[in-house]
């Protein structure tokens, strides 16, 4: 058995059902909001978007960037881990042989299709040498054609910076760093 209590049923008074007082109450609310928002923007929640931005949360996965070595070269060793794990197949890496025998491989071309990317962050997890990160806090800007979203290694490196992570398990204190 369910007990139901009728709370606001037909118990309006004649004054309430004449609309008069209730309309005045409503008007006082709307006018208060109008004055407050006109004079001080007190309750206004809308942002004037491009000029005012709400910062993204710290762990927001935004645009990728390719990190650099101390000498400015790309950290990526073209191991293909990110391209393999990528569920959207948006990473294309063309590997090449590096002159430095300690580095062996490096990407001649590293491109990400930001239209295909699902921003899952698996590439960042998969990377063994902290070469790719998604911590720019930005999202792709609008482009006038699809090719604009196809980002090359140069652009990705421009977003990147030097990484302090130690690469390839080689420690600086064993004389090879």
């Amino acid at each position: 058995m369910i007990r139901v209590r009728e709370k606001y049923g037909d118990r309006m008074t004649a004054l309430e059902s004449s609309y008069l007082t209730e309309t005045l109450k409503g008007l006082s609310i709307t006018l208060r909001h109008f004055l407050e928002n006109t004079l001080t923007r007190k309750n206004t929640v809308t942002l004037n978007y491009p000029e005012e931005k709400k910062p993204y949360p710290e762990r927001f996965r935004g645009l990728h960037r390719l990190m650099k070595r101390d000498d400015g070269q790309v950290r990526c060793v073209a191991c293909m881990c990110c391209a393999t794990v990528c569920p959207a197949h948006c990473i294309k890496i063309e590997a090449g042989e590096h002159d430095d025998h300690r580095i062996e491989k490096f990407p001649i071309e590293f491109s990400i299709d930001w239209l295909r990317c699902v921003y899952c962050g698996l590439c960042v997890d998969a990377c063994p040498c902290d070469a790719i990160r998604m911590d720019t806090g930005e999202h792709p800007k609008p482009q006038i054609d699809r090719n604009g979203f196809l980002t090359t290694k140069i652009d990705l490196m421009k977003l990147g910076g030097p990484s302090v992570a130690v690469q390839g398990g080689v420690r600086p204190d064993n004389g090879e760093g």
Partner: peptide, 29 residues
Amino acid sequence: LAVAAAMKGENKIGVTTEALRTQRSEEAV
């Protein structure tokens, strides 16, 4: 206002609100 208050007791099909409320609460039970 007095006329409106006097008319309050009856809704359109002529059932008084009190009777309607009793009926409703019985149905709910």
